[in-house]
Design a protein around this nucleic acid. Structure first.
Lengths: 344, 344
DNA sequence: ATTTAGCACTCTGTTGTATAGAGTGCTAAT
DNA sequence: ATTAGCACTCTATACAACAGAGTGCTAAAT
């Protein structure tokens, strides 16, 4: 049932050629570009077999072959020689990326996205750490106007997020400061889910107590943490996609793709799914079931801060992506980002 | 030299028809769609004259006419009957926009952009108020780790921005709190430019004084305000542009346009230029000299918070934009936003 | 038992030609 | 001043012819 070595070589040749040329690959092209010591006729037989088995497809009877997602999958999993980032990419990152200021995680993540886009020539995406899953460093409340409170969350890794919530109009800034201090004391170092849980427990326990400020602290804390904070997704380089021939020819696909890019929800969902898995993951074309990007491939990797996975980053490009270059790039970038986030 | 009434009517007819149909307009179309009581031949004469004068152009000898930017300009300035937003737009905004929560200006601005895009069917843009030009309500410093300080700025209209700066590593949170209090006391209610100026003056004056904390306060204040804060531009609905026939047919223009959208710099510049002018401004096609959007028109209006102009918003669409619908829409939206920002 | 040369066949894309249609500009009549 | 009429121009479309790339199959060669 398995493909023999020769068939695999031919498949590799077709995939590599197609990635380079974006045109259906015929038996002649294969014989010319690679030296298998086989005639076109033989190649044709093998290609026909590969098509039967679902690794290649033909746009029409008398055309060359194009890899199917299954074909790319085999290539990526078993045939590709992927090892290190290219020397250029590695050097470039060392010179231009590692030197970015690390004090503001936002700036750092943005720069990471830019690097991914720049070096891959596709679109770079970075899903920012969800502040709710990081350990809390500080929680501050600042009174804006009566009844409106600015909540400032700072995580241990320096991630900052602010949000405005409604609150008891009787609270003064003094109350708020005391509440901040109290909550920081009590919950500093925990992650938000834990805090939320403890708050609820405690509120139940102390329901009947008379310490009104304590109650307000609990109430405010709960409110501050209850709504899921907006998820932050950086996307840079979508216009790179416009240069690819496969989309230039198919306006409909491009429309769908750009709508997806603009709405971000589908991409968020995909990246969120990948956050549980360690290392590089690859979604090839229709393997990912997201409408709009079913003609794209994604190469994503989770990254960490300290010993916890906190987010994912990656590259979105055509199924005809240069996997052997992009996969090590994404892997490497994820590691560099993890390192940058860790060194504090 | 001026166009007579009849020519102006014909020009209006051509512009209106072209906006609707996106195809060169011939003399027959004009006679059929409008009843001027003139034969096609007469229309032709007039159109030829309009072309001579630069209001219309012909893609080729035997085609109908297309308005030039000059033609659109005359239409917009003198021929168009623009008055109110459509009933639908007005109702829609009343129902869906005026009810948005106003406590978080960011959310509000985002919603505004969404509305502009939704109702115009083009791309909506909103340039957020520059916090440096708003009056300061609060300035808070929070120590992240040694030498890194989170600066939190809150403006009187509730605009919040945070930034991370390097600072004297010897400063403790206690120092920072005192500095915050001091600066708030001294400068609350002023705008950042004023504050910056006063700080410099004062620093010079008190150079030789021995109050070290005061000096540090000055120094920190200066640092916190020195770098221009990033400008915030919301853009929503770029993918609407993909549906327009003029761009679908011209891939190159579309590429340029989307690159411009992604980079945002050109749009920022344009909107910043418009911030000094009150009311609605219109840039038609090549009138705006920004590469990438020279085939687009912009309808923008400044908006205010209280009695000061703080930002601009608008719509980016094809030169063939439905000006009579979009201009009142932009105008109306700007006024609504101003009202929402004011009611505090 | 493979491999391959040879060949008929298929499909695309390009080129050239004819044609219909839309629209113009000009002239002469109203 | 307007317009009917007409010759002219240019585009878009359809169609045919054809070159080119590529295939699959068969029979010969290794």
């Amino acid at each position: 049932m398995d493909l023999n070595e020769r068939s695999r070589n031919i498949l590799r040749a077709v995939v590599v050629s197609y990635i380079e040329r974006a045109l259906p690959i015929g038996s002649q092209t294969v014989t010319k570009s690679f030296s298998f010591g086989l005639s076109p006729a033989t190649i044709r037989n093998i290609m026909a077999e590969l098509e039967d088995r679902g690794y290649l497809s033909q746009p029409h009877t008398s055309a060359g072959r194009i890899p199917t997602p299954k074909g790319y999958r085999l290539y990526v999993d078993e045939l590709m020689e992927e090892d290190h980032p290219t020397l250029f990419d590695e050097e470039f990152l060392k010179e231009n990326y590692l030197s970015t200021k690390r004090e503001d995680p936002h700036a750092l993540l943005l720069e990471t996205t830019r690097m991914l886009s720049l070096l891959s020539h596709y679109a770079g995406v970075v899903l920012a750490p969800k502040i709710s899953e990081t350990r809390l460093d500080r929680l501050e409340f600042i009174l804006l106007r009566k009844g409106h409170v600015l909540v400032l969350q700072v995580s241990k890794d320096g991630l900052v997020q602010h949000r405005i919530i409604d609150a008891d109009p009787e609270l003064t800034q003094k109350d708020l400061s005391r509440i901040s201090a109290f909550l920081n004391e009590k919950f500093g170092g925990l992650n938000l889910d834990e805090i939320r849980l403890r708050l609820l427990q405690q509120m139940r326990a102390e329901k009947d107590q008379y310490d009104r400020l304590l109650q307000k602290a609990m109430e405010l804390g709960r409110k501050a943490l209850e709504e899921p904070p907006q998820e932050e997704l950086y996307v840079i380089g979508t216009s790179n996609i416009l240069n690819l021939p496969e989309f230039a020819e198919n306006l409909e696909k491009m429309k769908a793709l750009f709508k997806t890019f603009e709405e971000k929800a589908a991409i968020l969902k995909l990246l969120n799914n990948s956050i549980t898995t360690e290392g590089v993951q690859i979604f090839i074309g229709s393997e990912n079931r997201m409408p709009g990007i079913e003609d794209c491939s994604l190469v994503v990797s989770s990254y960490r801060s300290g010993d916890r996975i906190v987010g994912t980053l990656g590259v979105i490009g055509p199924t005809r992506m240069e996997y052997d270059r992009v996969i090590p790039l994404v892997d490497h970038t994820a590691k560099l980002l993890s390192r940058l986030l860790d060194q504090d």
